[in-house]
Design a protein around this nucleic acid. Structure first.
Lengths: 334, 334
DNA sequence: CCTACTTTCCAAAGCGCTTTGAAAAGATGC
DNA sequence: GCATCTTTTCAAAGCGCTTTGGAAAGTAGG
C-alpha cells in the first residue's frame, strides 16, 4: 500500500507538501500540485480513511438503523426502497453508510451510544423499527443527529420524515365518497407502528370534511398482515355491519379484506369497494388489482438523508419534520 | 470523549497498562484489570475504532455490494433477506458492515479497489448484481476476499454461494411428473442472471431422469417479470404448443403465466399446472396460491457470511462453492 | 542478605494522515 | 544591493490506540 511519504520521497518533497497538494491547498504551486497528483495516480495512491478520520476527527460515517425481522414483505420492500434513497443521496457525498451491527432483537445488544461513539458515527438514519424499540428511547437523549422515518420525534438533533398520511387518508376517503360511498369501514394497524394513529386521524378528518359521521362499529384494528385484514372484514361481515367500502391502512390488509369479501360471495368493487395504503408492488397483481395510496419510498429516503446531511453540517438549524406527498393510484378494487 | 490516557491519569497508571488491562493481557494483574475495567465503565470509555484500526492495521470492515435498481420486488426481497442473514452472522463477530457507496448505475463510479483500499475493507459480500456489472470484472482480479451470491466465480480469494438450482428444478419437475404431467413447458429468465443457465440445465437433467425428451418448442425466455411470464405463455398458447404444465424460473413469471392461462379460459391447476421458483412471499397470496421452490435466502446470507469470515481469517484455505438446499412448497397451483 | 527469576508496570515508537509554526527561496521596491 | 514581502516548502506535533523493549518491584532460593 503506497502512502503519502512514499510519493514524497519519490519526488524529493516533504510529506506536508504532498498532503497539501492532494488536498488542493493554496500554499502549493500549481506546478507541484499537478506533479504530485500525477505521480500519486501513477503509484496507485489511495488515502487511508482511518488515518484521515483520526487526524480530522471526522468520520464521514452515517449509520443505518433498521430492523430486519419484518414479518411482511411490504415492510421489507418499504425499508429496502427507503434505504435505496438514502444510499443514492449519500453516494453523492463523501459519507459512507454503515449498518448498525447485530441482531436488533437480541436483548444484549450494545447501547446505541457506544456503537456511535466508537465508530465516530456522525448521523443516524432510522427506518422500520418498532415504536417500542429501546433504541428509540436512546435517540431521545439527543446525543447524535438523526432522522427517523415514520416516528414523530423532534429534538435539537433529531427529526423525522414521513409520508403525508393525512393527505393519503383524505385522498382515499374523498375518492370513495366521490364514487358514492358513505359507509366506509376502516381497518387500521396496531400501535407499534407510529403511522397507525395518524391514519386513523386522517380517516376521521376526511370523514368529517365530507360531512360523514364517524362510526366506531366499522373501524377495526389489524396488525398489517393479510390475515388480520381478512379477520377484520370477516368480523365486520359477521356483525352484519353496514358498509359499502373498506379502507385499509396497508395493502396487505386490503388483500385480506378482499379475500374475506369474496368468500362471502360478494364482489369487489361492485358490492364492496376496497382501497389500500402503500402501493406495494403486488398491489398491481392482486385480483382485482388494488386501488391504493402510493408512498414515495425512495423519496422518503433521499429527502430524509438530505435532511440528515444538513443537520450534521449545520447543527444550529432548528428542526422541523418533513412530509412527502402521496398519490392516489386508481386500479380495479375501487 | 474519554480516552485511554484519561483513565490512566485518573488511576495513576500508565497508558500501556490500561490498554493491556482492557485487552485482557496476561501481564496485568487481575486486580488492576478489574480496577481499570470498572473505572473505564464508570467514565463511559468507548474505544476509538479508527485509532485501533490504524494501530492494528485491521479494520473489521466488510463491505456489502448490492444493486438497488432492482425492477422486481422479489429481487428486492431476496436481497433484503440475504442481507439480513449476513448482518445476523457478522453481528456475532467484531465485524461491521459498510455499504459500498454510490449509485451503482453511474458510469463514473469509483473502482472497487479504491473503495476497499481506502477504507481498509477486509472482505466483500456481493448479492443481486448483474452478470454484466463491471465490478464483477474487478472481482476477478482477486484482490480481496469475497463471497458472491449466485454468480459462479472461484479464485484464490473469491468464492460463491447459491441455492441448489439443480435440485430445485429436479424437485419441481419430479413433482409435476408425479402428478401425471409429461409435457412440461419451461419459462426461463434472461442470461443477465447467472442462475438462468443453471435452471435450464436442471430442467433438462430432470426431464432426462424421468425419461422425457427435451422439446425446445415449449421452452421460452423471459426476464423474471410478471409480464414476461404472461407473454411467454400467451405465445405458447398461440402456437398451440402441447403442454399440460408450466415450470417458471421465478414466481413472478409464474404469476404471469397463470394470468395468461386464465385469460384463455383454462383453469389452474386443472387444465394447466404451474410451478414457480423462489417462494417470494406473495406466492401464498396469488390465486391459486403458488406451488413453488423455496429458496432459503436468510441462510444464503448467513452461510455466505460465514464462508467470507473464514476466508478472511484463513487466507490459505482452498475455496469451494457452496450450495444451500431448496424446498418444494406445495400449494394450489400444481 | 544477595542473586535469580517472575510479575507488574512504563516510556517511547509507530500506524498514516493533517496542521501548526517557522524557515528557505523568490519576488519587489527603493 | 539591501530590506521587505510573498510564495513555497518543511520539521514536528498530534489524532487515540497497540506494542516493543526494558526497568522496577516483588518473590524465592541459597
Amino acid at each position: 500500500m503506497v502512502k503519502l511519504i512514499d510519493i514524497a520521497k519519490k519526488l524529493g518533497l516533504s510529506l506536508t507538501t504532498v498532503s497539501r497538494a492532494l488536498n488542493d491547498y493554496e500554499e502549493v504551486s500549481s506546478k507541484t500540485k499537478e506533479l504530485v497528483r500525477q505521480t500519486a495516480k501513477e503509484m496507485g495512491y489511495v488515502p487511508n480513511k482511518f488515518a484521515q478520520n483520526l487526524a480530522l476527527k471526522k468520520s464521514h460515517l452515517i449509520s443505518l438503523l433498521y430492523d430486519d425481522y419484518q414479518e411482511t414483505i411490504s415492510y421489507q420492500s418499504f425499508t429496502f426502497e427507503v434505504i435505496a434513497g438514502v444510499r443514492n443521496y449519500f453516494g453523492r457525498t463523501p459519507y459512507d453508510l454503515i449498518i448498525v451491527p447485530g441482531n436488533l432483537k437480541s436483548e444484549t445488544r450494545e447501547p446505541l451510544k457506544n456503537i456511535c461513539y466508537s465508530r465516530g458515527i456522525e448521523g443516524l438514519f432510522v427506518v422500520g423499527i418498532r415504536t417500542n424499540d429501546p433504541y428509540i428511547e436512546e435517540l431521545k437523549k439527543d446525543f447524535i443527529p438523526a432522522v427517523i422515518v415514520d416516528y414523530p420525534l423532534i429534538t435539537k438533533k433529531v427529526t423525522y420524515i414521513q409520508s403525508d398520511n393525512l393527505m393519503g387518508c383524505k385522498l382515499a376517503v374523498d375518492y370513495l365518497v366521490s364514487r358514492g360511498h358513505s359507509r366506509i369501514a376502516f381497518i387500521n394497524g396496531h400501535d407499534l407502528a407510529a403511522v397507525s394513529p395518524l391514519r386513523l386521524d386522517g380517516y376521521k378528518t376526511a370523514l368529517k370534511e365530507n360531512g360523514i359521521s364517524f362510526d366506531e362499529d366499522i373501524v377495526k384494528v389489524g396488525n398489517y398482515t393479510e390475515k388480520s385484514g381478512y379477520d377484520a372484514v370477516r368480523q365486520l361481515l359477521k356483525e352484519k355491519a353496514d358498509f359499502s367500502a373498506v379502507f385499509a391502512a396497508s395493502d396487505l390488509m386490503a388483500v385480506g379484506a378482499i379475500k374475506a369479501i369474496k368468500e362471502k360471495g360478494l364482489k369487489v368493487p361492485e358490492d364492496v369497494a376496497v382501497v389500500g395504503f402503500d402501493d406495494v408492488f403486488f398491489a398491481e397483481y392482486s385480483h382485482p388489482s388494488l386501488t391504493t395510496i402510493r408512498q414515495h419510498k425512495f423519496d422518503l429516503g433521499y429527502m430524509g438523508a438530505k435532511e440528515l446531511h444538513e443537520i450534521i453540517e449545520n447543527p444550529e438549524k432548528p428542526l422541523r419534520s418533513r412530509k412527502i406527498d402521496v398519490e392516489l393510484i386508481i386500479r380495479e378494487s375501487a
